[in-house]
């Protein structure tokens, strides 16, 4: 039996909005530590990993490990019924056929309830090791989204080059080339605009912009985004949710001459 009450339904709504364009169906794995999700896109070059910790819910109860296989497009349709400040309660039996979603308006004068049919999804889980990245860039999520969309207009892929001077996003397309360079920046008034670059060694990698633009749909979840790079390993883009909950995206780098 699962019962999880989320004060802000919008969190789940934004998470699902961010990943529904990357994966079609996925399992929400519920256990006593929280609700986790891991899924890859159709081409298996990108991976999304979400963790909603039990502390983020009040109350949270999960007696047994339950996998809720959901079609994200369908879930979006149900979540569309939620108002921004609704309280969401997710309920499911131990061997569920449906997932029950209950939306209460904050004034508790409107209650809407939905049952979403579940599906059996065969998914392989990848073990993701803790990695020491060569470069870790923390920057405003809106800024990252802007850079990605701007460069995506010119080219399919972006080169990300982190050095002691800063981080340079550059692209080379049919109509020309372009680049955006960011330097470390600390603002006392507006800490959400800080740009922080931690570097152990310079690194330069190329990524598909279409995927990065897709990741940026999660910008609504958090003001800041953390981008971690090391050569020869997938890029990590992490959005922190409330507490230690997170939404992470991994993307395989482009290797080879065909940039």
């Amino acid at each position: 039996m699962l019962e999880a009450r989320l004060e802000q339904a919008s969190i789940l709504k934004k998470v699902v909005d961010a990943i529904k364009d990357l994966v079609q169906d996925c399992n929400f794995d519920c256990n006593d530590s929280g609700i986790a999700l891991q899924a890859m896109d159709n081409s298996h070059v990108a991976l999304v990993s979400m963790m909603l910790k039990a502390e983020g819910f009040s109350p949270y109860r999960c007696d047994r490990n339950i996998a809720l296989g959901v079609n994200l497009t369908s879930l979006t349709k149900v979540l569309r019924a939620a108002q921004g400040d609704d309280i969401l309660t997710i309920k499911a039996e131990d061997a569920p056929d449906v997932m029950n979603l209950l939306f209460e308006s904050s004034g508790e004068d409107r209650i809407s309830e939905y049952d979403l049919k579940l599906m059996d999804i065969d998914q392989e889980h990848l073990g993701i090791p803790e990695t020491e990245y060569a470069a870790t860039i923390t920057m405003p999520s809106a800024e990252f989204r802007r850079i990605c969309t701007d460069l995506a207009a010119m080219s399919e892929s972006v080169g990300i080059e982190a050095s002691k001077d800063g981080v340079k996003f550059s692209c080379n397309g049919d109509i020309g080339n372009g680049s955006v360079t960011l330097r470390s920046h600390t603002s006392i008034d507006k800490p959400e605009l800080n740009v922080d670059i931690e570097l152990t060694e310079p690194v330069s990698l190329t990524f598909s912009l279409k995927y990065l633009v897709n990741f940026c749909k999660a910008a609504a979840l958090s003001n800041q985004v953390k981008i971690c790079l090391s050569s020869e390993v997938p890029l990590l883009v992490e959005y922190n949710l409330s507490g230690s909950s997170y939404l992470r995206f991994y993307l395989a780098p482009k290797i080879g001459d065909d940039e």
């Binding site: 529904k20 364009d21 990357l22 994966v23 079609q24 890859m40 896109d41 159709n42 081409s43 298996h44 070059v45 990108a46 991976l47 994200l72 497009t73 979006t76 990848l126 399919e156 598909s208 279409k210 995927y211 897709n214 749909k217 997938p234 991994y250 395989a252 780098p253 482009k254 290797i255 080879g256 065909d258 940039e259």
Partner: peptide, 18 residues
């Protein structure tokens, strides 16, 4: 979703599977 459909068209050459 539309996004999933569009990602299918993305050129993933040179990208290794995760």
């Amino acid at each position: 979703s539309r996004g999933v459909r569009e990602l299918k068209k993305v050129n993933t050459s040179g990208m290794k599977k995760l």
